[in-house]
Write a protein that binds this DNA or RNA. Structure first.
Lengths: 223, 223
DNA sequence: TCCTTAGGCTTACGATGTAAGTACTGTACA
DNA sequence: TGTACAGTACTTACATCGTAAGCCTAAGGA
């Protein structure tokens, strides 16, 4: 009796990839705080402990999730020169990190990169070297660009608003409810800039990116 | 009997500040993962639930800790011009975030800034405005600089090595144990740059910072 | 004097990660 | 054909976590 019943219900076995993808989906819709082994198992129709056949533990799961995000970032193709390649790759990276807001918070705690992450970094370095950057200059460019991308993603993720209406709501609350004169420049920025129609913080990304890319071009002396 | 015993043992009551400082100290030495209400209570010689007389919950505790870190960042003084002021403030911010490696990871999840945080941001904006930056240009400068600072701190915090010896160890492990030809540029960078004597990733900070500051100066047309 | 309040303490609950052990299945080999 | 084994899932159990609820005592104002 028990064997027959079990046999009837049996599905195709899970694999690591399905587990990671389900974890990413769960974190996307409910936040990283809602991602527990039990809930992830539930989403996959499986008990929590069964997941341990495919990931070594929660740490390994998180590492794998970060690697999934990196795998979504387009690799730079050096054909059109390093500058457009880096530009497009930065935009793709920000988009991936904005799609998965939890990812940037994981990067601080997780420090064992997966294959997609390594491939990504290797491709970026290769693109810069191929364009004639010295080793030192490559390291500098890599450091500024990645710091900027991650930092921007971090700020975007920690903004208390995503949509334009939320922005207005938050900025108004802020301007209205604080001790009026305590933070004059902050309130002036809120009123005179953030609350202007059409404002969206994400627009800042490419402005700063181009500033940095131009500066790198000048510093490298590379056309 | 009980009253006498309690009276004899009684200490000066806690306050929010002591709780926050102890939490920061605990996180500094054992990592943010080791910070639980029970362990924090233990460090203060108090039961976990007593902490709830001084913080509203763990979220409030974390918010307060982030604010403590911001309070350690030196405010910009505009006397010598915006550029040295921004430079020194960026260096001070990175130092604070490096002293408290857990802080950058909290910024993603916590989104209600404390008074020190607001004061800091207000001072930065004020410095730029006083130097003649337009509102838009102020917003741009603010966004690039903070993104860079936070992103750099994030990368620094997620590096698997802090000391020079650890760097060598990790880089050697990395170069030696990976499928040799899979990530050629990454291994080349490790061997030809990271493993060179005197290398320290933190040195990159000021290089990128000056790149950005120069670019801002040019963009703003401000001497 | 009594009453309020502040700041501790105890107990208890549900959720979490995971160690340990069990049961079933399909495959490899005798 | 039978048998051993490896893979995958399940069950149970435990320590730890945040925190709700309620109690006790000392200090201070009425």
């Amino acid at each position: 009796m028990p064997s027959a019943e079990h046999a009837a219900v049996r599905r195709a076995p899970l694999n690591r990839d399905q587990v990671l993808r389900a974890a990413v989906a769960l974190a996307d819709e409910s936040g990283i705080g809602a991602l527990s082994m039990r809930k992830l198992g539930q989403a996959l129709g499986v008990e929590a402990m069964s997941l341990y056949n495919h990931v070594a533990g929660k740490g390994d799961l998180l590492d794998g999730m970060v690697d999934v995000v990196f795998s979504e970032i387009g690799l730079p193709s050096g054909d059109a020169g390093w500058k457009p390649a880096m530009r497009q790759r930065a935009i793709s990276a920000r988009a991936a990190l904005a799609r998965h807001r939890w990812a940037i918070g994981l990067m601080e705690s997780r420090s064992s990169p997966g294959p997609a992450t390594l491939r990504h970094h290797d491709a970026v370095l290769g693109c810069l070297r191929a364009a004639g950057f010295s080793i030192e200059m490559t390291a500098h460019a890599y450091s500024v660009l990645d710091s900027y991308i991650y930092g921007f993603a971090l700020q975007e993720a920690s903004l208390p608003f995503g949509t334009a209406e939320e922005t207005v709501q938050v900025a108004q609350d802020f301007a209205g409810q604080l001790p009026a004169g305590d933070y004059p420049h902050l309130t002036a920025l809120a009123v005179g800039h953030v609350l202007q129609p059409g404002y969206h913080y994400g627009n800042e990304f490419e402005i700063g990116l181009d500033l940095i890319l131009d500066a790198l071009e000048r510093a490298a002396g590379t056309p």
